[in-house]
């Protein structure tokens, strides 16, 4: 079913004539995103987390602090702040099905515009949910989640809100940085909600140590690739 839907979306994009990306059969999400081919990944050389599972966009409206907080705190689907979705799972929001897609990005950032557009979904006035799992070999105290996003975004680590940035903005590395937090040994769930107004949409995320150096000593899993 999932595969069929992806193929259908791809076919629709190509058939619409607006697709400018050379979409290969195994790169359904644009030039920088692809379905994961391994069970686990590592952050890149600068610590950026490149594996995420993303939900197809939800329509919202507003980028101010209060608007975004209201948008991200609204319950769209069950277990919204605890679920670790699987690739291809579907949730129903307002009577419409939205599919979770596991992706690897080849860049430091995750291009949500490519993601949505490749699926034939809206890119403006939308909310993207993203989840990943950071697997730590040992407890890591005093680290910070450092994120950037276009546009506003709110982030949670193991269920606790860690950082939020608001307003119409472009993605800047380490734009919003959390207070010092502790990553526990084993899996840690990182969750984000990115709200876009119009135009490009993307985000980036990494963890920094007490000296503001990127942390790479963990693995990342999302969407149970190759399950």
């Amino acid at each position: 079913m999932t595969t069929f839907l992806k193929f259908l979306n791809l076919a629709l994009v190509i058939a619409s004539g607006v697709g400018s990306f050379a979409l290969a059969a195994d790169t359904n999400f644009g030039p920088t995103l692809a379905s994961p081919k391994s069970v686990e990944a590592r952050p890149d050389a600068e610590g950026f987390i490149q594996r995420w599972i993303l939900l197809e966009p939800i329509g919202v409206n507003g980028l101010t602090d209060s608007a975004v907080q209201k948008e991200v705190k609204m319950e769209y689907f069950a277990n919204q702040f605890s679920i670790v979705p699987q690739d291809g799972e579907t949730v129903s929001i307002g009577g419409a099905n939205h599919i979770w897609h596991a992706v690897d990005t080849t860049e430091y950032n995750v291009n949500l515009y490519h993601f949505a557009r490749s699926l034939g979904k809206p890119t403006s006035n939308v909310l993207f949910w993203g989840v990943t799992v950071v697997n730590c070999p040992e407890e890591m105290p005093g680290v910070r989640l450092a994120i950037g996003s276009n546009a506003a975004s709110v982030w949670w680590v193991n269920g606790r809100e860690a950082v939020g940035i608001y307003g119409d903005r472009q993605t800047v590395i380490d734009d919003g940085v959390s207070k010092r937090i502790t990553l526990k040994k084993g899996p840690n769930i990182i969750r984000c909600a990115v709200v876009n107004g119009g135009g490009a949409a993307d985000f980036c995320a990494r963890f920094l140590d007490a000296d503001d150096k990127p942390i790479r000593a963990f693995t990342v899993s999302a969407g149970n690739a190759d399950k």
Binding site: V18, G59, V60, N61, G62, Y113, A116, R117, P122, T123, S124, N125, V126, G197, G198, G199
Partner: peptide, 9 residues
């Protein structure tokens, strides 16, 4: 560029 759900822009 790609459309949206409406709203200011």
């Amino acid at each position: 560029m790609g459309g949206g759900f409406g709203g200011p822009g």
